[in-house]
């Protein structure tokens, strides 16, 4: 199981957080000097949960229509912003700058 300290050790991580299945922020860690705050993380959690829900609908529809399995259940969602990337998997997430993002390392850390 991931913990926030481990997630903060991901290269470049400026924030790590845990959220509920409804997208509510449960706990978080923010790097010193970062412009992130709990309000922003809470909104990012809701964005990720909303898109996981949409992706789940798409995975169900896609698999039914094409017979091509392998998308459902949806495991994670990543949003590539202009400067920052937020990566979530299960009930944990991490925020890293685009310049340092390592998607695979983040997923490994998130998968625990």
């Amino acid at each position: 199981m991931s913990d926030l300290n481990k997630l903060m050790s991901v290269d470049g991580a400026v924030g790590a957080f845990k959220f509920t299945s409804k997208g509510e922020l449960v706990e978080s860690k923010i790097a010193d000097g970062s412009e992130l705050n709990e309000q922003i993380l809470d909104l990012l959690c809701h964005v990720c949960i909303a898109n996981m829900a949409i992706a789940t609908m798409q995975a169900r529809g896609w698999e039914n229509m094409t017979g091509m399995k392998g998308f459902y259940p949806i495991k994670g969602f990543t949003m590539v912003g202009f400067d920052w990337t937020v990566i979530v998997n299960g009930e944990f997430g991490v925020v890293v700058p685009n310049s340092q993002v390592d998607y695979e390392a983040a997923h490994t850390a998130l998968a625990g």
Partner: peptide, 10 residues
Amino acid sequence: GNADQLSMFT
């Protein structure tokens, strides 16, 4: 967008 996809999938 979601209604279009619902229509497409169903």
